[in-house]
Amino acid sequence: MSAQSTDIATYNFAYLDEQTKRMIRRAILKGIAIPGYQVPFASREMPMPYGWGTGGVQVTASIIGPDDVLKVIDQGADDTTNAVSIRAFFKKVAKVEVTTDTARATIIQTRHRIPEHSLTAGQVLVFQVPIPEPLRFLEPRETETRKMHALEEYGLMHVKLYEDIAKHGRIATTYAYPVKVEGRYVMDPSPTPKFDNPKMHRSPALQLFGAGREKRIYAVPPFTDVVSLDFEDHPFEVQTFDQPCALCGAENVYLDEVILDDHGGHMFVCSDTDHCEKRRGDPTTPLWGGRAEGAGDLATTPATPTPALRADPPHKGEGKEAE
């Protein structure tokens, strides 16, 4: 790097050098060719700690071009630290346009959610993955889990679901819910709520998964079958909420619990902030009085909960990601 140069030109486009991007693209192509298969790749050190999306950032950096429009969400929100800083990162190193608008984005990097707004052909969803191996907690040996994938030995995955039903009377796994891709590979959809699993099935968008610490990339090409594992007598079900979003009144969306005060005041609002704001800005959305239990006067409630108020801290430590 030349010393006299102080501007952004000292960085390669999108931060990674071209050789690295080629290597990652090859992994991505292989992943697309074998849907759900975990492709090892030489994950690079990124200017951020593991657990903050190093895998997703490397995938995004490898596929992004000057004409792309990037959206980054963390737990559905565009305004949390992680989302804001990754967006800023690419604005700086790739000079691309960024947006919070799901429909406008060509690349959406996400941690733990799939946007509520239906994705369309041509869009790419990049997932940040902490632990790509769905069998890991049942079988700690990588040599063994690889063999199990190769030989399609997935009985163990159902052992986990069996344990859920035995302990809780139902399949209690609510996030990172295992799926079978194109009838072949069992895949961890990353710690998204199982609410989002049906959105992966035959999605027109390309879905890419990057695990930086574990050095794995996998992919679900557009219009691919993604089926959540279940039992005949305990079929897969998504979470349901018995009330709509307290801010925009949306139903059939994924809600976050927001703590309002120290006295048990809380409310449930859209996890997808873009979706929520759009609805509230849209005059055709029916007015909704909102509900916040024990929250007193709704008028004092901030229109958008600040990140600090979120019940679910946006960044958990490494290893806790999958909890």
Partner: peptide, 26 residues
Amino acid sequence: RMTVSAGANVGERLMAVGDRHYGRIR
């Protein structure tokens, strides 16, 4: 498998050969 229940230990082979009915496995 020391960390899964006795029932799942017995049921694993059944699930491995494709039984997908919880009630029957149990």
